[in-house]
Computed example of a mutant assay.
Amino acid sequence: MSHTVDIPQELKNALRKFRFARRNAGSAAMVVKINKPKLIMEEVEQFDDISIEDLAEELPENAPRYVMLSYELNHDDGRKSFPLVMINWAPISCEMSLLTLHASAFLEFQATADVSKIIEVRDGAEGLTKEAIDAKLKGER
């Protein structure tokens, strides 16, 4: 399979560790970007117990990111679960060449991260809210 962007083994290890971390409260996130000159993916930062609104403020307005999110979902029947969600952060204000590169590597990142729930966010921080994520996750059932 041909690919445009490499995913280094250290990032694969970090994704695996994030995926299998035990959580019992709050949402955690891992932010990954593409280093355009090197054509590799790099971890930008990890957040533990971060609100969705704070996460939205941490993400750049003019650059795409892949965000792995372990999300604290409160169900209507009182149960709590922590689904793993991938946020495809691709604001429309991004440079077109970055968006194209980001889109070309999306499926490979999704497969490497081994996540099936995807939430697209194209309208910046206004599109990344707790209400929007709750609606998308509860609507999938």
Rank of each mutant, 00 (worst) to 15 (best):
A90Q: 14
P83L: 06
S93A: 15
I52G: 10
M41D: 04
L137H: 03
V32H: 01
I7R: 03
R65Y: 11
E140I: 00
S81K: 07
E108G: 08
G26A: 02
E131T: 11
A90S: 15
A28S: 15
Q9V: 14
E61Q: 02
L101E: 04
A135M: 10
A90V: 02
L59W: 02
E126C: 06
D123S: 08
L137T: 00
G124A: 00
H3Q: 10
A29K: 02
V31F: 00
L15V: 13
I118V: 15
G127Y: 07
A28M: 07
L137V: 08
V85H: 07
N24T: 01
I87W: 03
W89L: 09
A29W: 01
E120P: 05
A90E: 13
D6R: 02
Y71I: 09
L11K: 09
V5E: 01
L101G: 06
A28C: 15
L101I: 10
T100I: 13
I34Q: 03
L73Q: 14
A132K: 14
Y66P: 11
I119L: 07
Q46V: 05
E131W: 10
R141F: 05
M41I: 01
G78R: 00
P37N: 11
A56Y: 03
E108L: 07
I118Q: 12
M86P: 11
V32T: 14
K33G: 13
N35T: 07
E10L: 05
P60C: 11
P37C: 09
L59R: 03
F20V: 12
A63E: 15
S93R: 00
P64D: 11
E43I: 04
P8M: 03
D49M: 08
T112G: 09
E72H: 05
R16K: 12
N88S: 15
A63G: 05
G78I: 00
F109A: 06
V44A: 02
S70W: 06
A132V: 13
E57L: 11
G78H: 00
R23E: 05
N62F: 09
Y66T: 02
T100D: 11
S51A: 08
Q110C: 09
K117Y: 08
